[in-house]
Amino acid sequence: MVSGLQTYNLPAQGEYKTDLGTTVNVVPLNQNTISAITPIKAENITNYAALFNTQQHIYKLASGDVLSIQLWNYPEISPPVATTTNEQSVQAYGYPIDQEGYIYLPLVGRYLAQGKNLTQVNKEVRQLFARYLKSPDVVVRVITYQGKRYSVQGNVQKGGQFYLNDQPVNVYAALGLAGGVTTTGDNTSVVLVRQGQSYNLNTVALEKAGYSLNKLLIQPDDTIYVNAKADNKIYLMGEAGKNQALPMRDQGMSLSDVLGEGLGIDATAASASKIYVVRSDLKDKKTTIYQMNLSNIGDLAIANQFVMQRNDVVYVDATGLTRWQRIVNQIIPFSSTLYTIDQLGK
């Protein structure tokens, strides 16, 4: 008979299934359980650590790159390098690496350049020309880098495709090349898609864990997506001072922050012992409900330690007396109407 969200059927702790088939795990918040709840799951730390590979960056040539090859003692053999910035002119004068990874050299013929660095190419090309020329002084350079691409999308000024070169590019540098994050973008919520797997990069949480995005280098075919601030909210419902959707702060928020932004809990209607945080895992399709008992003011420290995540729902339940009063308030007008109708019929 009681309207609104119901919590009477929640177990004190453990898993259960709702009537709609949702698997829910209820976790009571206390000093023993709070330490196990972190912004980044412990089992994913290894995956994040593997991303931050600081090995030396050596560019390997790829199909689409354009090379210049100069034979200083034989200028008639090698084509001149165009000085114009026009991309088509550069390709016309240089040596583009074809789709199979080859370039075509005078005297030598086809040469496989793909997958090799410039040091290796200079050495091999010099050896090849030495078969036909006396003491060839060969210098191979890259005119344009168009072989290895990555993409920056989402809430950035100039989203699109970009090219890697011999200088390493980290995530922050890639965002800068895309014009930076827009006013609607959330610079703390970045998704990296690499080899079919998505990594949610909470920049604040990663920095605190010792993983700076300055050290996360972009690889070919990576995609960076910057989420919108509108997608990064916390929802406050129930007997709070103000029900609302709160934008997540860049530095993160605790449960105390959320309750404070919502003007606290209603002193006349709220049950301080029944404050819930509903958190869903879209991958596992499971829901966790954290139950907080704030009846004792000393336990506010636990609320300060509980770190909120995007799309969390905070629900403040009503007291039993409040629910009963609302039932009575609904019944009295209805019973008065029935009495009036009965009197009119007499």
Rank of each mutant, 00 (worst) to 15 (best):
1 M>S: 14
1 M>R: 08
2 V>T: 11
8 Y>I: 06
13 Q>F: 10
23 T>A: 12
26 V>I: 12
27 V>A: 12
34 I>V: 13
36 A>H: 15
43 E>F: 05
44 N>C: 09
45 I>D: 11
51 L>F: 09
51 L>M: 13
52 F>L: 08
54 T>M: 09
56 Q>H: 05
64 G>D: 03
65 D>S: 05
77 I>E: 00
85 T>V: 14
89 S>G: 07
96 P>I: 01
98 D>E: 09
98 D>P: 10
101 G>N: 04
103 I>C: 03
110 R>P: 13
112 L>S: 05
115 G>P: 00
115 G>E: 00
121 V>H: 01
125 V>P: 01
125 V>Y: 06
136 P>K: 00
141 R>A: 13
143 I>E: 15
152 V>L: 04
155 N>S: 13
158 K>M: 13
160 G>P: 11
164 L>T: 02
179 G>S: 07
182 T>K: 06
183 T>G: 12
188 T>Y: 04
190 V>Q: 02
193 V>Q: 10
202 N>A: 02
205 A>C: 05
207 E>L: 12
220 P>F: 03
224 I>T: 06
230 A>R: 11
234 I>V: 15
235 Y>C: 01
235 Y>G: 05
240 A>Q: 10
241 G>I: 03
248 M>T: 00
248 M>F: 05
250 D>R: 08
250 D>T: 08
252 G>C: 08
254 S>K: 02
256 S>A: 12
262 G>M: 01
265 I>P: 00
266 D>F: 11
266 D>C: 10
268 T>K: 14
269 A>H: 12
269 A>V: 08
276 Y>R: 01
276 Y>H: 00
278 V>I: 15
283 K>V: 06
292 M>W: 01
294 L>D: 01
299 D>I: 04
307 V>N: 10
313 V>M: 12
316 V>F: 01
319 T>F: 10
332 I>E: 09
334 F>L: 13
335 S>I: 10
342 D>P: 02
